[in-house]
Design a protein around this nucleic acid. Structure first.
Length: 440
RNA sequence: CGGGGCGUAGCGCAGCCUGGUAGCGCGUCUGCCUUGGGCGCAGAAGGUCGUCGGUUCGAAUCCGGCCGCCCCGACCA
């Protein structure tokens, strides 16, 4: 993509409403535009990141055996009356009526609807387990939206739902999602730590929040260093195997938010293993049994092995996709701007032509641009007629992982500069070496 | 929902106290110049001062209602 034709409104100054760093950078880097309190448009660069994150989330959900569907944003009130939540949910739920005066709502979550889909088609225990998910916009009329996309009213969320014959099966589904979440956040370039959360109505230990560590995080967290340093991607995962030992190895070490913090237990950890940090919640998984499928709610049954009706055991699993864009920036930025992890970067390479109009830099850039693209490398080519300083500043601001800097001095001798955004190290290389590094 | 603050050009702000018909920086447009870290010079466009009403000869400015946005707290992917 040529930057001269790309819709990328970067700002030199920070809009007054933005307080936290991710919000400031998202506005300055031209990722989003606020349309109302907690409601945002996603501009081309921001939308690309949203799509990148969604792709990774999707790949890991699919790998864990979850199947993607797409439920609507608008839901009928009747479903929520069945579960009893229409009255319970309160003002956070946006309600309205259509032209026939039917009551509708903008979905804040989808337990009722997915349960409705399930009960329409699944009649036998032989069809279990079932795991469905979608990535869809949600609306929660938060009293006080803030922090940009970190707490918006309209937000993109991945929500999964599992249906099992019994609690042992539900635990297997839970464990799959647990591991899928670890892998998802690791692939997004984040250190996400599962922390025990409020237990559901059944009790037990089947509820975890996934919290990423970031200096500007909203809550205080306490974790065992081994959890922070452990790399799930280095471990082989077979979703058909018993994941319980793996899950236990992650949950046996200390990890807690300040609400659940146990000072004594934390003090029992060797001092060099204690990590007190700030965190941001990016995912939440929990088991809730028959809360929605039971007779008190939507009364869903399948026929069990003995021919008798069974209420399926359910769980739900959420990842805040749009929130993650902000969370990743909170976890990865510097004074100059965003530093995208490679896996979610909107483009992999920024190609900077420092002297547009100079025959040598123009042709060198054109060649690099074409050859990178031909090899599947996504490049944002800064071919604007701007001064070098503007290009450097914008490149650092939007945070693409690699910058290929082509200036008249180096170009004359066939050299360009390769700069890594993270860390900032630079190398003068000839064009083939640059291509080799970026394509390999 | 309790407390506080703010709405003036695309963005950041001054002007308001002490009413007299709107200004600065950045950005944008044109030309020249410059070309390795948000240059320089010259010219230009762009604002019903959130909105409705009141006071006044006259309101961005004083008074009131409404709307919107932000911050702190309680609550949350």
């Amino acid at each position: 993509m040529r930057l001269s034709r790309y819709f990328l409104p970067t700002l030199k100054e920070t809009p007054a409403e933005a307080q936290i760093v991710s919000h400031r950078l998202m506005l300055r880097a031209g990722l989003i535009r606020q349309q109302a309190a907690g409601i945002y448009s996603w501009l081309p660069l921001g939308f690309r990141v949203l799509e990148r994150i969604s792709r990774i989330v999707r790949e890991e959900q699919n790998a864990a055996g979850c199947q993607e569907i797409l439920m609507p944003t608008i839901q009928p009130a009747e479903l929520w009356r069945e579960s009893g939540r229409y009255d319970d949910y309160g003002k956070e739920m946006l309600r309205f009526r259509d032209r026939h005066d039917r009551e509708l709502l903008y979905g804040p979550t989808n337990e009722e609807m997915v349960t409705d889909i399930f009960r329409a088609y699944v009649k036998s225990y032989r069809q279990l387990p079932v795991m469905l998910y979608h990535i869809q916009w949600k609306f929660r009329d938060e009293v006080r939206p803030r922090f940009g996309v970190m707490r918006g009213r309209e937000f993109l969320m991945k929500d999964s739902y599992s249906f099992d014959l019994d609690q042992a099966g539900a635990r297997r589904s839970y464990n799959k999602m647990f591991v899928a979440y670890l892998r998802t956040f690791a692939r997004l370039g984040l250190k996400a730590i599962p922390m025990r959360a409020e237990t559901g109505p059944i009790g037990g230990d089947l509820s975890h929040e996934f919290i990423i560590l970031a200096e500007t995080g909203e809550s205080q967290v306490f974790v065992h260093r081994d959890l922070v340093e452990r790399d799930i991607l280095a471990e082989a995962v077979d979703y058909e195997s018993d994941l319980q030992p793996l899950v236990e190895s992650w949950t046996s070490l200390y990890a807690a938010t300040d609400e659940k913090h146990d000072e004594a237990a934390f003090a029992a950890i060797p001092p060099e293993k204690r990590v007190a940090a700030r965190g941001i919640e990016v995912g939440h998984i929990f088991f809730f049994g028959t809360k929605y499928s039971g007779p008190q709610a939507m009364n869903v049954t399948v026929q069990g092995p003995d021919g008798k009706p069974v209420h399926p055991e359910m769980g739900s699993y959420g990842i805040g996709v749009s929130r993650l864009v902000g969370a990743i920036i909170e976890a990865s930025h510097d004074e100059a701007g965003i530093i995208w992890p490679e896996s979610v970067a909107p483009f992999r390479v920024g190609l900077l032509n420092l002297k547009v109009g100079d025959a040598t830099t123009d042709s060198l850039c054109a060649d690099l641009y074409e050859r990178l693209r031909a090899n599947g490398v996504e490049v944002l080519y800064d071919d604007r007629e701007e001064r070098a300083g503007v290009k450097f500043a914008d490149a650092d601001l939007i945070g693409l992982p690699w910058q290929v800097i082509v200036g008249p001095k180096g170009a004359a001798s066939g050299l360009v500069e390769l700069k890594r955004r993270k860390g900032g190290e630079r190398h003068e290389l000839d064009r083939d070496s640059v291509l080799e590094r970026l394509i390999g």
